[in-house]
């Protein structure tokens, strides 16, 4: 658990309730959420659609008034100007004013952030360089692609060197190349000591970028913590070969534990628990040496998606908000 003093962004009892028709009960989008985002972390909020991720994010950054609860950024209430000095925000859906040039858009936000004169010119150049838009700043935003608009939105968020960069679904609607460019940008920000908070449905990206995660379900946090502590630590590989022989099986079982051995017409597939990468290379060597053909050798450990599904389905089954227990770690079999 993150100590409050280590938390850059801290929420206590955040709740948001919407009034519906008078004859219907009120709808609670976020229900008494406590959340601490560690300083210098890359923090992800994940959850199914309608879980309340965006609502929580907006309340945590002071852009939405909660029905109850508090949100602090660097010890200041999130709704105050002092807190917002430390925040850079990129919403999920936005349509930038098409008539403005990219440079004018950044000038607007730089001026509002208190950056003027030569500092403004220099800083705009820096953030444009950071998001790889230096050569397109004098074009109208209406001519930008979706990826470029996303990058210039991130650029405006980076202008004031915020302590925390908050992004709502930053890679939705981007093509794979644009997603990679964006991930590279965020990695640079994180490497420079910045704190990132993002929510995303793309769990592979979250797993790649982030070191902390909170899983939200029906307005409540059902699991949160450091990613490496939450995801099963055992490494497994998935193997598919052609030309499986009993001798090969006997050789492999000397070093690794073979699970789920499956034979079809021509191929044999199995998963194996291994200690390290050397064991994976050893498996490949043994298969090839025996004269068999190796078609596939790939990691098959529990990732964030497995954790997500396990957590959500577990919370649906039990109706509990406490995180379900992680599966027992498979014993590592060494050489």
């Amino acid at each position: 658990m993150t100590e409050p003093s280590d938390a850059l962004l801290s929420c206590r009892g955040l709740t948001r309730t919407y009034r519906t028709r008078w004859w219907r009960p009120n709808f609670t989008a976020v229900d008494s959420v406590d959340l601490d985002v560690p300083r210098g972390s890359a923090f992800a909020l994940v959850g199914p659609n309608g879980a309340g991720k965006t609502t929580l994010m907006l309340m945590a950054t002071g852009l939405m008034r909660p029905s109850s609860g508090t949100a602090l950024i660097e010890g200041h209430a999130a709704s105050t100007s002092q807190a917002r000095r430390n925040v850079g925000f990129v919403p999920e859906k936005f349509q930038l004013p098409a008539q403005l040039r990219g440079r004018d858009f950044l000038k607007l936000h730089a001026s509002i952030a208190g950056i003027h004169g030569a500092d403004q010119v220099r800083r705009i150049g820096e953030v444009a360089e950071h998001v790889d838009l230096s050569d397109r700043l004098d074009d109208r935003v209406g001519a930008y692609s979706k990826g470029m608009q996303q990058r210039i939105a991130i650029a405006q968020a980076l202008l004031a060197k915020p302590r925390v960069l908050v992004l709502d679904e930053p890679t939705s609607a981007l093509d794979p190349l644009q997603r990679k460019l964006l991930r590279d940008t965020l990695r640079r920000v994180h490497a420079d000591g910045g704190t990132i908070v993002l929510n995303s449905h793309n769990l592979a990206e979250v797993e790649d970028l982030c070191d902390h995660v909170a899983i939200l379900e029906a307005g409540k946090i059902v699991a949160s913590g450091a990613l490496r502590d939450m995801v099963e630590r055992t490494t497994r590989v998935r193997v598919r070969v052609r030309g499986w022989t009993p001798d090969l099986e006997a050789t492999l079982t000397e070093r690794v534990t073979i699970d789920a051995l499956h034979h079809d017409d021509a191929n044999t597939s199995f998963t194996a628990s291994i200690k390290d990468e050397d064991a994976a290379a050893w498996i490949a060597h043994q298969v090839v040496s025996s004269g068999a053909w190796l078609f596939e050798l790939a990691p098959s450990g529990e990732g964030l998606e497995d954790l997500f599904v396990r957590t959500i389905t577990g919370s649906h089954a039990t109706g509990a908000s406490s995180p379900p227990a992680a599966p027992a770690t498979e014993p590592e079999v060494g050489a």
Binding site: Q95, I112, A157
Partner: peptide, 12 residues
């Protein structure tokens, strides 16, 4: 358009 959120996130 969502740009109000970007403005409101500034210290103004």
């Amino acid at each position: 358009a969502g740009t109000m959120l970007m403005l409101a996130a500034r210290p103004i």
